[in-house]
Design a protein around this nucleic acid. Structure first.
Lengths: 246, 246
DNA sequence: TCACATTTGTCCGTATGTATC
DNA sequence: AGATACATACGGACAAATGTG
């Protein structure tokens, strides 16, 4: 890349083929998905047929499928009746890459907590003005389910994580959902190393419930201070673990 | 990992193999990179040798390499003297996935602009308190380079995008860098559809210069209003394009 | 400039594992 | 339980690209 000048800083001829064949196949299928020709739930033909239709070898098809799989566009099931199915798991893939990136750069837990706090502040702000009745109902249902789990003596870790995702959705802006889920994936990755106790799980549910009430009442100031307190507590808990490990 | 209790409702034996072979190989190599055994710049053995060492077929190795490649851990060059080299391109991969995610969900430009504005607000806030002399020097150099390009009658698109990345770096928190670059990648993806004029490019550089001066003087209020104005202008330009297309 | 060695890219044939009916 | 359909995996072979002498 980056060939400065050809005649006048612009290249006259673009190479007919610079991508590898499996990349060609991959982006070919990707475009079909993105433009709606192939929809979620649809099934792709078997690899052998794909190879024939694209007029390439099976190995090429397989490598193309690996790209699509890791990009979150398809899932592959082996065995009879299985095959390749269009499915949107991009967000999970982004989260996975975020986790990798943090491990690679050896980013500390403080940086993540700080970023999460700031993002959640924004989210709360937007959620307070944009949340629909449907959003609030879903948040209510989430807290209800979490309470149920706690009373049954079970952990509500997953539901508790979901609460923040629902809050992000209530902003009406999907970008906030993506950003929050990416950051939270890293956060949760750290959290899995600390044995979750029933008490802390219960505390979290209570905090969510109070926060939700403040949101429902439109009490901005109260909601903000509750969020602050909630996340500060999470931060303390994580730092404790961080030091124990070190 | 994470087997709480072994007697009731918990599995005693975990399956020896649930991952596919190429996934096994991939995460094997990935761990070697993450724990520092393999460092950036190192070269992996040729595929045939890898196949022998892992005792698998070359096809399996190739699919494993595709995963690592798309995850941003390696780059592959063909030909003599080429091969697989450890290289960290995770951030670029995340940006690519973000672009895919937006196309897939058909998120509008307004949502992205809004999110970017909020994130940049935070970044400016942190940069104002945390920026080191080195950070400021790099920002200065960036503006200088951009000005040079403009005077030479060339566009400064790349440098202008880099300015915001440098600002994010000045927060001292790498999470902000990741989030901003992800959002900006989508933004730039939209921007490539509008033919950039020399005048707008120049305008942007001037805005950056003014903003930098305010930061250097520690004038928080001024910096904030300048940022606001700058991003609002970008927003207007984009919306214009958006409507022309529709 | 040209030939050569190295390494990835691609194809084919075949066998095995696995899930569904 | 058996047949079927599909992904998974192996091995061998050749083509294409790219650096080196």
């Amino acid at each position: 890349m980056s060939q400065g000048k050809a005649s006048a800083s612009q290249q006259l001829f673009t190479p007919v083929k610079n991508k590898r064949t499996f990349e060609e196949v991959s982006s070919n299928i990707k475009e079909l998905i993105l433009d709606g020709t192939l929809k979620v739930g649809d099934r792709l033909p078997p690899e052998t047929q794909l190879a024939q239709q694209f007029n390439v070898g099976r190995q090429t098809i397989r490598e193309a499928l690996r790209l699509l799989e890791l990009s979150g566009f398809i899932t592959v099931q082996r065995g009879g009746g299985g095959g390749t199915i269009i499915k949107d798991t991009i967000l999970r893939r982004i989260s996975d890459l975020f986790i990798d990136a943090f491990r690679m750069r050896r980013v500390g837990i403080e940086a993540i907590t700080q970023a999460r706090l700031e993002v959640e502040r924004i989210i709360l702000d937007y959620a307070l003005t944009n949340a629909t009745k449907d959003d609030l109902e879903k948040l209510r249902a989430n807290v209800g389910q979490a309470n149920k789990l706690i009373k049954a003596g079970r952990l509500a870790t997953e539901a508790n994580a979901q609460f923040h995702g629902l809050l992000a959705k209530a902003t009406g802006n999907p970008v906030f959902v993506m950003v929050l889920e990416s950051i939270m994936a890293v956060h949760l990755d750290f959290l899995t190393r600390v044995p979750a106790s029933l008490e802390t799980s219960e505390k979290v549910v209570m905090a969510h419930e109070q926060l939700l009430e403040a949101i429902e009442q439109g009490d901005r100031a109260k909601a903000q201070s509750l969020l602050e307190a909630h996340l500060t507590e999470v931060r303390e808990r994580l730092h404790q673990v961080d030091q124990e490990e070190a």
